[in-house]
Design a protein around this nucleic acid. Structure first.
Lengths: 109, 109
DNA sequence: TTTTAATATTGCAATATTACGATATTAAAT
DNA sequence: ATTTAATATCGTAATATTGCAATATTAAAA
């Protein structure tokens, strides 16, 4: 039915999946990489840098803001975006906990 | 228009995003966790374990197989799924490379 | 060979996502 | 006060995803 059944999963599973989901779009990866590598904070540059409309970029930024991985500060007419380091580390930890699990090697494969 | 513009992004950005995307669903996280923790290989157990229809589980397994993070071996009537360790480590590496980038702290935030 | 069990595939219906033009909103600059 | 520039929001069209019932398919068991 197009609706994800979050209720049947644990809070942890939903949290992990929601982080993965937001990062599961190349434009949002590109935005994050640009923010990370740029010395100065960016804002409208992204529209020129990536080939997407202003409205589209704004929407992607909103989703990244929603999970808290970036934050924006109003600077006159423009908005300066940067990584929220605390949240970045939190997300990183969630992922590494997930990946550092011990995998039981099974007999079949 | 509902269609992701992969052409405007780098191969790396698309690859990272596609891994994130597949893991961006709680049912697929639950499936992976179950495969990881279970001593024996699983198959139809997932249908009982998670509260989803057999067709739905089968579809999620297919997506996990598509990125190669799990593999299935036919064992008589049933299929034994397990983590493909090689791919798992590859995906882990992609993610840690992404997260271990140096973040330039900017003046605005 | 028929039945049974496990899984895959097909074909929807419902909902979500992506993208963008048009239109706010906001604050500096003139 | 008006204009300009940067960003956000709204509305909408196109496409994707999720989920499931129904129906294959496949292989062991009877």
């Amino acid at each position: 039915m197009g609706i994800t059944k979050t209720a049947i999963h644990t809070a942890e599973q939903n949290e992990i999946a929601s982080f993965f989901k937001v990062l599961g779009h190349p434009a949002r990866i590109a935005i994050l990489q640009h923010i990370i590598h740029q010395k100065a904070c960016i804002c409208n540059d992204l529209v020129d840098e990536l080939g997407l409309a202003q409205a589209t970029i704004s929407q992607h930024l909103k989703e990244l803001k929603n999970i808290g991985i970036i934050k924006g500060t109003i600077e006159g007419k423009s908005v300066c975006y940067c990584i929220d380091e605390k949240k970045w580390q939190k997300v990183r930890k969630v992922f590494s906990r997930f990946f550092d699990q011990d995998i039981n090697i099974n007999q079949c494969c």
